[in-house]
Design a protein around this nucleic acid. Structure first.
Lengths: 285, 285
DNA sequence: CTGCGACGATACCCGTGGGGTATGGGGGAG
DNA sequence: CTCCCCCATACCCCACGGGTATCGTCGCAG
């Protein structure tokens, strides 16, 4: 009898819903694996835990006993976790994100991470667009949720997602109606660009692989202004509302922008490691 | 923080041994996965649980807290299992085995199964050699630990092991000194054989694929007598002491004898299912 | 100082199990 | 009788947990 808490969580969900489908939804999984897990639990227990009939699902007497035990165990397990994290004391984790154009899921990630690690004070530090590492090397940032590519020496980088990119244009631009563009279509235009000294990989990517002329920007708002006022163009993400008077046309010959989580190589702080795990898991879902 | 009991068992083992290698041995696993599991636990916890130094392994203050919590949880989990099985009430499971030539691990299996399911009364019913299903179809046997091949219609069969076989000979037989034999070497001999009506697959296997002449046997002891008194031969398992005056020479052209666990197809009794699982697990180890 | 042994960490591979989707089947309601 | 609801089954696939081999480090002995 090797009970596992995950199985008990499944069992409690079914026992409370008395409906496999709803329990599965509550557990954010599909119904068949749940049925299978319960059946396996019944096998281990050596007794049926639920009475399945056309009238529905009902707990057997053995199931009633297990339900009480399982709830107790799960409560205590939660308490144990809380006590342990309390013993670990408070801690601070500073996460860098990439300005307002950064990952839109960052807030969701921070929330879920805080829920899982209530003892950790998570500080989010927004960097401008011109530093893809968000000051990871120099500053107090412990981990960054940012975008590739950049110079990764001394850092660990793990890709979590890739987003398609497009050209940011004025809505009245001659090219604005096109379904898709190539970099060649934008030849000769002024591009908004990043300050000198910015990571070369980073510049090269957002400039479509070529040096560009045009106004220097440090934040998304400046990009918008540059396009609106000067008619410059530039690369941005598709799928978000570009704002009044602007439009985004997919660039068909540019590699998607890779969202990554990065941290200092050889980092030993478990907080950083757990944040990285959470970030990867959050993006997988 | 999604604690799992297995991880806590690992943690407790390391915390008690203060030595990853010994803890791994106690857990019957190798050391690297254990190190990894502990590291992952530390990551989830957001704190180091052990202080690794050249002096050895020591618990951190957080580890001390978790150790107390973990022991408590594991104890309660064990209790929960006991209460549940108690609630399930007593039950009877009848297991058929294949006479004294059956699986030598059957006793071990029965012991471990009884330990895991103390509420189940396990009755072991020894069949003769002439019924590979041990009366599973007709009789009160719920599951059988036997050997293939036999007619499996209406039964579920799962192989758990395969044993090499050899020829059972008198120690003074001219062939007794050989390191290995083929079926051709035994051509023309009388073989001990099974009664008429015995499962044809079964007969065919033990007779080396050919009809044989010779005395009928129903138990291992009769096989020994047939060989000792009449100079007949037959197929048996290698690796067990054949008894005084007898010897076993490996048969190089016979397929190994497959140990299987079998039960009635469509069986719903969780006891039977759990026994099958236990049997498979026991033989895997 | 250097070779060696002990021990935990790392790298890598593989099989299983737990997750998914698609489908079956049985039992009520209309 | 047909449809629908709902749990079970069948099948696939990837992640993870397990394994072996090897490394890095540190203490110790010669």
């Amino acid at each position: 009898m090797e009970l596992e808490l995950r199985t008990l969580r499944y069992f409690v969900a079914v026992a409370e819903e008395l409906h496999f489908g709803r329990a599965a939804a509550r557990l954010r999984m599909s119904q068949p694996p749940l049925s299978r897990a319960i059946k396996r639990l019944e096998t281990e227990a050596g007794a049926l835990l639920f009475e399945r009939s056309s009238a529905g699902v009902a707990l057997t007497p053995v199931g009633v006993v297990l339900l009480a035990e399982a709830r107790d165990l799960l409560d205590r397990a939660g308490l144990a976790g809380t006590r342990m994290t309390a013993a670990a004391g408070r801690a601070v984790l500073t996460v860098g994100i990439l300005g307002d154009s950064g990952d839109p899921d960052a807030a969701r990630l921070a929330r879920s991470y805080r829920a899982r690690h209530p003892h950790v004070e998570v500080r989010v530090r927004e960097a401008g667009l011109s530093d893809p590492t968000c000051g990871l090397r120099a500053g107090p940032v412990d981990a960054a949720l940012t975008r590739a590519p950049f110079d990764g020496t001394g850092l660990e980088v793990r890709e979590v997602r890739a987003d398609p990119v497009g050209a940011l244009l004025r809505a009245d631009d001659p090219l604005a109606g096109r379904a898709g563009l190539t970099l060649a279509d934008l030849a000769g235009r002024d591009w908004f660009r990043f300050p000198d000294g910015t990571d070369p990989h980073w510049q090269s990517y957002w400039h479509g692989g070529r040096p560009r002329r045009g106004p220097v920007v440090r934040a998304v708002q400046e990009c918008r202004q540059a396009v609106l006022w000067n008619g410059t163009v530039g690369v941005t993400l598709v799928g978000h509302d570009p704002g009044e008077g602007l439009t985004v046309v997919p660039l068909t010959d540019m590699a998607p922008s890779r969202v990554v989580v990065t941290w200092r190589a050889g980092e030993t702080d478990p907080l950083v490691r757990s944040f990285v795990r959470a970030a990867i898991a959050a993006h997988r879902a």
